[in-house]
Design a protein around this nucleic acid. Structure first.
Lengths: 234, 234
DNA sequence: CCGTGTGAAATCCTTCACAGCA
DNA sequence: TGCTGTGAAGGATTTCACACGG
């Protein structure tokens, strides 16, 4: 395995969060048959400014051609390489309620680079049922069945069950967790957690709605993904 | 309507994004019967550091008591006031696929301050069906029925339909949009958009998994919510 | 004595602006 | 000439560290 191009130090998180956007846009371009794109156009499509695009992409190496722009194909390959999108990572979902089911059935969720290898629920009434062809198991069943640890664990349980789900996932070797439960997770050093909290998103939006109510008018737009990130470990 | 306490200028976005966490933690404390909490403990529960907590809360006014900490009840009231969580905002969901259904049925999504006033889908086959007691409508039906604009619009359509959904929502007066579709939305000045992109979350996580593969070990934890935000308007 | 509130320092990210290559 | 790559400037947020009030 080669190291990636220009950089050696880890990319800034904001940059990492934008890479999937660039990737998606580039893939769309490819479908449209376009072979190059300028930072200006990429920026427009992503809703950001072109300097940010250039800075981000320059961190992946020298992908562009002066006077021309970025080659669609090279862009896709470079971002794929960084995000590991070529790897087809195994994913386990814990918690098969409304959200868990929606994720399993959702078109886009497992697009490109991810496949479901397990569906776990603590409710014995659900164990044994099938969702989209995948049987629901207890955690111990999963543990016995899997030969290698899933790369990513998705927690879609109620808040009360989230910490235990995390502990279980970590015990089978998961080091990256996507947590939909409204709970902060305590995890050991080296484990990565991302939080997606749907009700919180509404609250953040209503802050702005509320501003407009009190005040005159406000006028900013919050874009592309939310994101609080806490450093654990160090 | 009174203005809020200490501040007059809008809060920094990272602070706004953390307020819902503090709110949730404070509500839990209240259920546990605790009446005060220190910035240190709050920080631990939120997975951040205490200076950040104090800075954030100081922006809402002087809520704490030196030597003691923050009063749970005052904290809740202050954050509720800022987030408009006492208002019970009307919400419309566009796109009743897997995700849309999951949101409608999801416990936490409409907790505290939000209620569903409309469910829209462009698919005529779905219009007329009921989901959790709410009938699915076409957009024009919604438009005719509503007397006042919903505060928040949630887009849970496929990517191709997202821009049109946004345009429709804006045409009925929505100024805050939560977009689950993997598409950047073009919106006029003054409209707020937040993006939640599930497949993107996996990609961001696998970046870190990929790092661990190439390198030795990495050890950061990405916390509380992701977030890219683009400034539109100004 | 304890823990908040807060200037000041440090860090991180974004934006500018332009040199340099195609 | 056009557009990338990038030092340098600017802005924003986090963290430090400590004075002050309870």
């Amino acid at each position: 395995m080669e190291r990636r191009a220009g950089t050696d130090r880890p990319l800034p998180e904001p940059t990492v969060a934008r890479l999937p956007h660039y990737l998606r846009i580039a893939e769309e371009l490819r479908r449209s048959g376009l072979t190059t794109i300028s930072s200006e156009d990429l920026a427009r499509a992503a809703g950001i400014n072109s300097a940010k695009v250039r800075k981000d992409l320059s961190l992946l190496g020298s992908l562009g051609t002066r006077g021309t722009g970025y080659d669609t194909e090279s862009l896709i390959m470079a971002i794929d390489a960084i995000l590991g999108a070529a790897e087809d990572w195994p994913v386990v979902i814990v918690g098969v309620g409304n959200l868990g089911r929606a994720l399993v059935n959702s078109q886009g969720f497992f697009t490109g680079g991810y496949h479901l290898v397990g569906l776990v629920d603590a409710n014995p009434a659900l164990v044994g049922q099938q969702v989209a062809g995948m049987p629901i198991e207890s955690f111990s069943e999963l543990e016995v069945r899997l030969t290698s640890p899933p790369t990513i664990g998705v927690i879609a349980t109620p808040a009360e069950a989230a910490q235990e789900a995390a502990d279980d996932l970590i015990s089978v070797g998961v080091r990256s967790i996507l947590n939909f439960a409204p709970r902060f997770l305590e995890v050991p050093y080296g484990v990565h957690v991302r939080y997606v909290d749907l009700s919180m998103e509404l609250q953040i939006l209503s802050y702005h709605a509320n501003l407009r109510t009190d005040d005159a008018d406000d006028a900013s737009v919050t874009p592309l993904h939310s994101g609080v990130t806490e450093e654990k470990g160090a």
